[in-house]
Design a binder for these strands. Structure first.
Lengths: 315, 315
DNA sequence: TTGAAAGCGCTAACAA
DNA sequence: TTGTTAGCGCTTTCAA
């Protein structure tokens, strides 16, 4: 397990030539190349990638910030990123933050320390300004609408997606529409609120449920919904998992879907098909792939990915 | 954005002293420490972690090999690993392999290249021997039963888990038991086969369904099950997602659970509770945490995590 | 086509 | 308590 100099000595060449061979440079004579390869073989040479990173000033590694790796929503985006990274020969350093700002900062610091060449933020808790402070250290891509910003972004138009879902329900004669969001304050929550107000005016606040991310959240919210005296006649739900929890709990409580309440989820996760749940399909994997392309690109861009309403039996 | 030498010059000390300050070594006078900190501040100093990695010969980074990042089964384990890594100040380099051996090898090479100090293999396709070849380059932990091996392991006793699930069904009067697995040939599939044979003799091969990982797989398998003339009266399913797909498709086809077929899933994912699906709870997050502890430990160990049958309404 | 030499930026053993 | 010095191992420019 020697280094480049051991090989140079054994092969009777200089370290520079060894480096050239190892990196497939042209302009190395057949003989020397051969000698180097043999010496490398003989010494079981493996290059130390940290030395390469230091010398080259980059790591071919991208950091990824996301709150939870075990949730398919984030997992799908991550999967798209991973696929693109693989193709380009990049590695991925991931930071599961639990939406903890301290951990987000620690992840951002990887950029300063040159541990990663760029950073993709799938979802965050910390203020945007904080992230912008790091933009000098490497390229950063956020998976959220960021039109004016100096950071790249790739996103679903949450406003339009929600808007068109509302219109769809309206056409179906629904007028008492409730919905759920992950976080009370948040980009996509605000977009939803705005879209709602535009069509129906301000939503009664007990028709808006937050902290909705998992199946269990759906179960809990269904309980709250059922307890309401002025129950919404339809619900637009954060994602298909929450919607699954909601739907199943409603059934358990004796309600019928869509008889007592119409349901629309988001993501078009396979579970929604199995439950015959209408949903808004989001190309999450593709979104991840685009994010990765952006992080390698030298110019700032803002890309929107399409959504599509999938009608099934829950409306 | 200078380096350690710029600071040394500005603060009027040696680079070694700067290094000592930056790493919180004792034995640095108050004055020099102060001077160094001020100079660092002034120059907006950030250390280059690659130089540290090179000099120290380690990276405080652990590699993780897993086939799919978007499936909750792997995601939960990864989440446990991530949590433990966070606590210890380690970073995680993940490789989504799609069970592709080429990519697995590439991940293993990170160990040779000293890009990671250790490696956790959540699930793999390549032969164990191949992995053992890398054991000299750093600690490796596999998430599968590996009793005799020189590599550490953490696992659920698949044989016992399956065994006791079979016994449970037997007690309930079930005699025609089918099951699903992810891969025809694989550690856990073999364990299941063995457990089955021990209690019921060889299973009719059309009662055993492979390629079962996702909700869609469950849907597909339910279709196959329904088409059988000698349908099993109960099914033990790879995981709760597949079970969810199976259950919902059965219902759609007009069968009742557990009237026409009893179902038991694995993992105790929240979706199983919502579906009132009986399942074998596996502490996946904890398994990940243990794997991480093992990868940092200097001694080889083999740890079993417990499983627990959760009775709900599907049997 | 090749080699010498100067980095890349930090650590740590040793001597003072 | 501090500085000197010799690495860590690879890349890359420059001159030959």
């Amino acid at each position: 397990m020697g280094n480049i100099h051991d090989i140079a000595r054994l092969a009777g060449v200089s370290a520079a030539t060894v480096s050239r061979v190892m990196n497939d440079y042209p302009y190395v004579s057949k003989e020397k190349r051969q000698a180097v390869l043999e010496a490398a073989e003989q010494l079981h040479y493996e290059k130390n990638i940290n030395a390469v990173h230091l010398a080259r000033g980059k790591t071919e590694t991208i950091g990824v910030i996301l709150p939870f790796v075990s949730h398919p929503y984030f997992g799908m985006i991550l999967s798209g990123i991973a696929e693109a990274a693989e193709k380009r020969g990049y590695k991925l350093l991931i930071m599961q933050t639990n939406y903890n700002v301290i951990q987000e900062i620690e992840a951002l610091n990887m950029l300063k320390l040159k541990q990663v060449d760029g950073l993709i933020v799938i979802s965050r808790e910390c203020p945007l300004e904080l992230i912008e402070d790091y933009s000098g250290c490497g390229r950063i891509v956020l998976c959220e609408a960021l039109a004016g910003s100096s950071l790249s972004s790739v996103f679903v138009n949450q406003y339009e997606a929600f808007q068109s879902t509302l219109s769809f329900l309206k056409e179906k004669g629904k007028t008492r529409i409730g919905y759920s969001v992950l976080r009370k304050e948040g980009k996509s929550s605000n977009a939803r609120k705005k879209a709602y107000e535009q069509q129906f005016g301000k939503a009664p606040c007990h028709w808006v449920f937050d902290q909705a991310l998992t199946v269990e959240d759906g179960t809990r919210i269904a309980g709250k919904w059922a307890a309401l005296s002025d129950r919404p006649d339809s619900m637009i739900i954060t994602n298909d998992f929450v919607a699954a929890g909601f739907l199943l709990e409603c059934r358990r409580l004796g309600f019928s879907i869509p008889g007592d309440v119409s349901l629309i989820g988001f993501d078009n996760h396979p579970i929604s098909a199995a439950l015959s749940l209408s949903t808004v399909e989001l190309p999450l994997q593709q979104l991840g792939t685009i994010a990765f392309e952006q992080v390698l690109s030298s110019k700032v861009s803002h890309k929107e990915v399409p959504f599509q309403l999938i009608e099934r039996g829950s409306v």
